[in-house]
């Protein structure tokens, strides 16, 4: 099956040809199948934000290519524009991009740029607003009068209204309170719709990544350092820590227990898994 998104030896250098040149991505090979739910992690400056900006064609690779449905994103201007709409990208702190007089018009910005008919735009705006839990009465308010959490919802609705096949989010939950985080993650999972759409999101929280994603991609120094199921990634907890990634507390407890000589599975990332692992370990140790 053709992957929905694929990068081939994708390399990106900032400030090319000046004394400040810096390699942000170094020959990255990556592919995502339709319906996947992928978490991208890595410490600040590892290249993950630069990476996702290539996936919808915002940044042009210095060398290498990005393919959407097997076709080079930059093969024509027309296709590049289409990809912008089919791969929705939500930036970090997206509430700072709001600009319209009313919430309604702000959400409609994307669909209008797609040159859709007025009734289609209207339908999409209302659907997207409803999806993120904005009430009808909010639509006529100024986005600048809303609270931080509500602004973020408006911004997300603005991307969802384009009905992208792939939704990419850069730290969508940063700066939200725990309740807001929970709600937002639920929305994202709902958008994924059991595999009908593809979701890729950057997060700093290994807990979030482990809980929601089917696959975790770890970036380090402009390379993909690990790529696999959460369990496989967590099995390399020590390497993760060396890369400056904070692993869940419970994983660290289990790693330490293992260090102390207890034969337990330390690739766990929830308390329940840890209890199960300890029980299994205890059963095994009972003979001694």
């Amino acid at each position: 099956m053709t992957p929905v998104l694929q990068t081939v030896r994708l390399t990106h250098r900032y400030s090319e040809g000046t004394p400040f040149e810096r390699v942000a991505l170094d020959s990255v090979d990556f592919s995502a199948q339709r319906g996947e739910f992928i978490a991208v992690i890595g410490h600040t400056g590892s290249g993950k934000s630069t990476f996702i900006q290539h996936l919808n064609g915002l940044l042009k690779p210095s060398s290498g290519s990005v393919l959407f449905d097997g076709k080079d994103v930059h093969s024509s201007k027309e296709f590049a524009r289409q990809v912008r709409f089919r791969v929705g990208l939500l930036f970090q702190y997206p509430e700072y991009q709001l600009f319209e007089e009313t919430v309604y018009r702000d959400i409609a910005f994307g669909p209008r740029n797609m040159k859709l008919k007025d009734d289609e735009v209207d339908e999409r705006v209302r659907e997207a607003a409803d999806f993120v839990g904005l009430e009808e009465s909010m639509l006529e308010k100024s986005p600048f009068d809303l609270s931080g959490g509500q602004k973020r919802r408006v911004a997300i609705a603005g991307v969802i209204a384009m009905r992208p096949e792939v939704l990419i989010l850069d730290e969508p939950t940063a700066g939200l309170d725990p309740g807001g985080r929970e709600e937002l993650m639920e929305n994202i999972i709902r958008y994924h719709d059991g595999g009908k759409r593809t979701v890729i999101y950057i997060t700093h929280s290994m807990e979030d990544a482990a809980r929601t994603a089917q696959r975790i991609v770890v970036f380090n120094h402009g390379h993909i350092a690990m790529d696999g199921a959460p369990k496989a990634v967590f099995r390399r907890g020590f390497e993760l820590i060396q890369m400056g990634i904070i692993v869940p507390q419970i994983t660290r407890v289990m790693m330490r227990l293992r260090e102390l000589g207890l034969d337990v599975d330390d690739s766990v990332y929830t308390v329940d898994q840890a209890i199960a692992a300890l029980r299994a370990g205890k059963g095994g140790g009972g003979h001694a």
């Binding site: 939500l90 910005f109 740029n113």
Partner: peptide
């Protein structure tokens, strides 16, 4: 730079 990218992602030209 950031805002431009964000609006471009929503199809601004």
């Amino acid at each position: 730079d950031k805002i431009m990218s964000a609006q471009r992602a929503r199809g601004a030209d």
